[in-house]
Design a protein around this nucleic acid. Structure first.
Lengths: 335, 335
DNA sequence: GTGAAAGCGCTAACAC
DNA sequence: GTGTTAGCGCTTTCAC
C-alpha cells in the first residue's frame, strides 16, 4: 500500500504536478473546476502530503522540542498535555526529552534537539546556572526558545511563569490564619530561581507578621520525596516546636509530611503542612495537602503559543507571561 | 549561522558532493587521505547531516510514535523513559501522544502518527475492543507495531507484557499468608484484557484456597482515583466484613484505601489493601501500598528493541516478550 | 578513486 | 489558468 504522491495525481488527471500542488493549496489562479477535480481525486485516493518532502522544501522540520526536568510527578505531564494540544492542532510534531534533574543529561537533550533540527525549543531547565551557554547558542542560531516554570539566569527568551514571591506570601498568610506561629520553610536548591523566590516570599511574610526569622527557620531540601523526608528529620532536630511547614514543592512537602507522621507528629494538629505545585499528588496523600495550584495545562498552552509566535516571526520580541496560581486549602492545614 | 552542507564541504575541498558523501559514510573505495581530509574539515566546520534530507532520500521519517493512555501516573512516564533511552541512542525521534483513556482520542492520535509518517508505532491502547480496525490497517500498510502492557484483541503485533494471571495469584497468596480470609477484588473494565487476567488470577486463588467466590467478591471499578473511592463505598455496602482488598491497579487501590481510611476503617489491621503497577505512587501514600512492581523501564526498552527489529526487517515475525513482575510487600498488608 | 546526473516529493519563480 | 524548470540536501547508480 504505497503512499500516493502529487505526481501520481497529476498523471491520472492529465495535469502537471505544479497545478495539482497549487490546486491543493487553494491557489486562486486555478480554475474552480480543476481545483474541484483535484481535491475530489485526492480525497478518493486518500492523498496525504509527504511531510518530509514539505519540510525539506521549506527548510523546517515542523518539530518542536520539549525538555522537561522529570516526568515522575504529573507536573510536566500536565504541561506537556497543553503543549501537545496546541502544537498537534497546528500539525507540528512534539519531541520530549527528560533530563532527570541532571544538567548534563539536559545538555545531551539539547544537542539531540539540535541534531533533530527542531524549529523551536520549549524548556524547563534543571539548573538556572548551568547550560546557559548552550541556550544562548541556540538562540543565537535563531532557534526560538521558550522557558516555562523555571528559567535560567541571563538568557534572553520568552517565558511562562508564576509569581512565586507573591503566591508564597499568600500561602504563608493562610498558614498564619490557621494559627501557625513557628513556621519553617523547606527551601529548594539555590540554583533554581523559583526556590529563591519562594524563599523570599517566606521571609517577607515572616517579617510582615512579626515572626523571628533566625537561621533555623529555613531548611535546605532537594527535589525528591526522599529529600523531603530527610528535611523533616532535620526540622525536628532544629526546631522541634515548629507548628507550620511550607515546602517549596509538593514532592518535598509529601516526603516531609509522611516522615513526620511516621515519627508520630500529628498533621495538621501539631504541624500544618503546605506545598507548592498543585498536581493530583496532593490529593492522594493523607491528609490531603494544602498547596499552591498552578495552571499547568494553561502554562503549556501559553508556552506553545509563544513558540508558535516566534516560529512565525523570529524577530518578534521576547515576552514574559505571568500566570496566577491559586491556593487550595486542604486537610493538611485545617485546624 | 547557516547549517553547513555537503555541497559546501565539497567546494572547499575541491571535491564533488558524491565523494564527500562517500567519504563521510566511510566508503572503502575512497582514498584514505581524501577520507581524512573530508572528516577533518567536517569536524572543524561542525558539519551535521540534514536529517530531513536523509529522511526524504531514504523514505523514512526516522521517527517512532508512542501512544500512551495517560501520563498522570508515573507508569507511562517510566516506560517512555526506557523507550527514549533506546531510540534516542539510535538517532530516532520519539513522538508521544496521550489518549486520556479515551478511544476516540486514541484514534486521533493514530491518525496523527500516520500523518507524521512514523516508521513504527508503540502503543498501549485504552480499550482492547476498539480501534482494532485502525491498528490492523496500520499493520497492513507495513508499519511496525508493538504493544506494551495492554494489547488489543485480534491484532497481530509484537508485544511486551507481564503475566497478569500468575502475578495476581501470587499477590493473593501473599494476602492469605497475611491472614486475609474475605478478600474482595476491585476489577477493571472488561475491555482491558489485563483486568480480565488479574480477575482470573483472583478467582483462581479463591478456588485454590477454598474461599467462596460469590457475586459479591468482585466489584467493578474504573481507572481513576475517584473510581477507586466509589468502589470502596460499594465494597462496604456489599461486604462490610471484608478483610482484604486487591485492586487491579495502584490508582484504584489508592483511591479505595484513602476512602476506607476516611470512613474510619483501619488499614491494614481491619482491611489489608494491595494494588498492581508499582510506580512511586505506592510509596507516598499512607500506609505505603503493597503492590505488584512491574519492570516499567525495561518494558520500554524491550518495546523499543522490538520496534527497531521490525523497522530493520519488516518481515521479522511478531514476538511476545513476557516480563516478570515482583511483589513488594509494604505496610498496607503488614499484619 | 572520483565525478556527473538523477531523483526522493514538494513548491515557487518564470514562462506562455 | 497551466506547464516547465529548478532546487531543498542527500545518496546512489552509472560512467570513466
Amino acid at each position: 500500500m504505497k503512499r500516493i504522491t502529487i505526481k501520481e495525481l497529476a498523471e491520472r488527471l492529465g495535469l502537471s504536478p505544479s497545478t495539482v500542488s497549487r490546486a491543493l493549496a487553494g491557489d486562486r489562479n486555478i480554475r474552480r473546476e480543476t481545483r474541484e477535480r483535484v481535491s475530489r481525486l485526492a480525497g478518493e485516493l486518500g492523498y496525504r502530503p509527504n511531510p518530509v518532502a514539505v519540510n525539506l522544501r521549506s527548510g523546517r522540520s515542523n518539530t518542536v522540542g520539549v525538555i522537561v526536568p522529570e516526568m515522575v510527578t504529573p507536573f510536566a505531564a500536565t504541561v506537556i498535555g497543553g503543549i501537545q494540544r496546541v502544537l498537534y492542532g497546528r500539525g507540528l510534531k512534539v519531541i520530549i526529552a527528560q533530563s532527570d534533574e541532571n544538567p548534563q543529561t539536559e545538555c545531551g537533550n539539547l544537542e539531540l534537539m539540535e541534531r533533530f533540527m527542531v524549529d523551536g525549543v520549549i524548556a524547563c531547565p534543571c539548573d538556572a546556572t548551568r547550560n546557559g551557554e548552550i541556550y544562548r547558542r541556540i538562540r543565537q542560531r535563531g532557534v526560538p526558545l521558550v522557558f516555562y516554570d523555571r528559567a535560567p539566569l541571563r538568557v534572553d527568551a520568552s517565558r511562562v511563569i508564576v509569581d512565586d514571591f507573591a503566591t508564597s506570601y499568600f500561602l504563608m498568610e493562610h498558614l498564619v490564619r490557621r494559627g501557625c506561629r513557628r513556621i519553617v520553610h523547606l527551601g529548594g536548591p539555590a540554583h533554581i530561581p523559583n526556590a529563591r523566590e519562594r524563599l523570599r516570599g517566606f521571609r517577607y511574610a515572616l517579617g510582615k507578621f512579626g515572626f523571628v526569622s533566625d537561621g533555623r527557620s529555613v531548611i535546605p531540601a532537594g527535589v525528591t520525596f526522599d529529600d523531603g523526608r530527610a528535611a523533616a528529620d532535620e526540622l525536628l532536630r532544629r526546631m522541634p516546636d515548629a507548628d507550620g511547614l511550607f515546602a517549596w514543592t509538593d514532592t518535598v512537602a509529601i516526603g516531609a509530611m509522611n516522615r513526620l507522621r511516621e515519627l508520630g507528629i500529628r498533621v495538621p494538629a501539631q504541624m500544618a503542612v503546605a506545598g507548592y505545585s498543585g498536581t493530583v499528588l496532593s490529593t492522594i496523600v493523607n491528609p490531603q495537602l494544602t498547596t499552591v495550584e498552578q495552571p499547568l495545562d494553561e502554562m503549556g498552552c501559553r508556552a506553545a503559543e509563544l513558540i508558535l509566535e516566534k516560529i512565525a516571526d523570529p524577530s518578534a520580541p521576547d515576552r514574559t507571561v505571568t500566570l496566577t496560581a491559586c491556593i487550595r486549602e486542604r486537610a493538611s492545614t485545617a485546624r
